[in-house]
């Protein structure tokens, strides 16, 4: 094929453009004399926490056992209660036979902990996951209602979808939190998840409707002519076929949901975006943190795209 021979000049051009853009950005940043502090970023992913280990009663150190870098200290109280604590060998503050009072420091132990960026990412992920599940349920119900023969159901679904799609998500989150949250006494997490689910649900409903209507009517007719009921036809014939068709737009919607979830940071939910803001207030590493936060969103969404791509290929067997 001719085209394969000729791709390399375009690849070079692409690389040149990217390099030029990077150089331009770098040059512009140079102009404003920004102090890059990349070394400050890793600690916000993971950090080594040191905890003081204290004796919970008045007592004596009965045994000090060293094993590699850690030391196991056995403490015995006056009423013969026994506890053991583990501390770093370098941080050991007591010796065998020493008498201690309640609250004295035996030594320090250290442990790797998740930093705010990881915690924020985790919050973003579970928030989006729960919201996605509810969005799927809501969207499925509303989508089915939109294609139903019943006027009331159709009307309700239409009003829901139009109201949600016609207003900004940020405003919906404010309404959910400041209005509904206050009236019904809901926590901020419930409000955040609820607003995201309602928002995505409206789009899922449209996707589901389009998916169902894309299945030829002959499928329903064949199933019904065999004596299957409408619910059976939906479950066995229409939805499985529609699902395959709507998987790409549906997954796109859930990827959007992950990105849109950054807006819940405005109601003080500490998701990835809010974590980023908090870190900046203590480090002033504004550029680095926002770039890292963006990269983390990008990583999650592209991983998800890969999973969907794989699923689509698996589902394509019967075509």
């Amino acid at each position: 094929m001719n085209a394969t021979e000729k791709t390399w000049p375009w690849k070079v051009l692409l690389a040149v453009i990217l390099i030029l853009m990077a150089a331009g950005t770098w040059g512009a940043v140079k102009q404003i004399d920004y102090q890059w502090r990349w070394y400050r970023v890793p600690q916000y992913f993971f950090y080594l926490a040191e905890d003081a280990q204290k004796i919970p009663f008045d007592g004596t150190v009965t045994k000090v056992e060293k094993a590699g870098k850690t030391v196991t200290v056995t403490l015995t109280s006056e009423s013969s209660e026994v506890v053991t604590v583990q501390v770093e060998a370098e941080e050991l503050k007591v010796s065998e036979g020493e008498e201690l009072f309640e609250g004295d420091t035996v030594g320090f132990s250290s442990e790797w902990r998740l930093g705010p960026l990881m915690k924020g990412l985790w919050t973003t992920l579970w928030l989006s996951a729960i919201a996605s599940v509810f969005a799927l349920i809501l969207g499925l119900i509303a989508g089915l209602a939109k294609v139903s023969k019943n006027y009331t159901l159709r009307g309700l679904a239409m009003i829901y979808v139009e109201c949600i799609r016609g207003t900004p998500l940020l405003v919906q989150i404010f309404i959910a939190y400041f209005f509904l949250g206050t009236v019904f006494d809901l926590s901020r997490n419930v409000c955040g998840i609820g607003a995201l689910a309602l928002f995505a649900g409206a789009y899922v409903a449209e996707i589901v409707r389009a998916g169902i209507q894309a299945i030829p009517p002959g499928q329903t007719e064949a199933a019904r002519s065999l004596g299957m009921t409408m619910p059976q036809t939906m479950m066995d014939i229409i939805l499985p076929q529609a699902f395959k068709k709507i998987l790409p737009p549906l997954s796109g919607q859930f990827i959007s949901l992950i990105k849109d979830s950054s807006l819940v940071s405005v109601i003080a939910i500490t998701d990835l975006t809010k974590s980023g803001r908090e870190i900046i207030t203590s480090t002033f590493a504004t550029f680095e943190v926002w770039l890292v936060v963006a990269a983390m969103y990008l990583l999650v969404t592209s991983l998800l795209s890969q999973v969907v791509f794989y699923m689509e290929r698996r589902l394509a067997v019967s075509d």
């Binding site: 007719e221 064949a222 019904r224 002519s225 004596g227 076929q241 019967s318």
Partner: peptide, 21 residues
């Protein structure tokens, strides 16, 4: 109507087989 349809089979011009089965 579903009872009736059990007793009345139908064959269509476009076959209408279930493609995912």
């Amino acid at each position: 109507i579903n009872k009736v349809r059990m007793e009345v089979g139908m064959v269509f011009q476009q076959f209408n087989l279930f493609p995912h089965k």
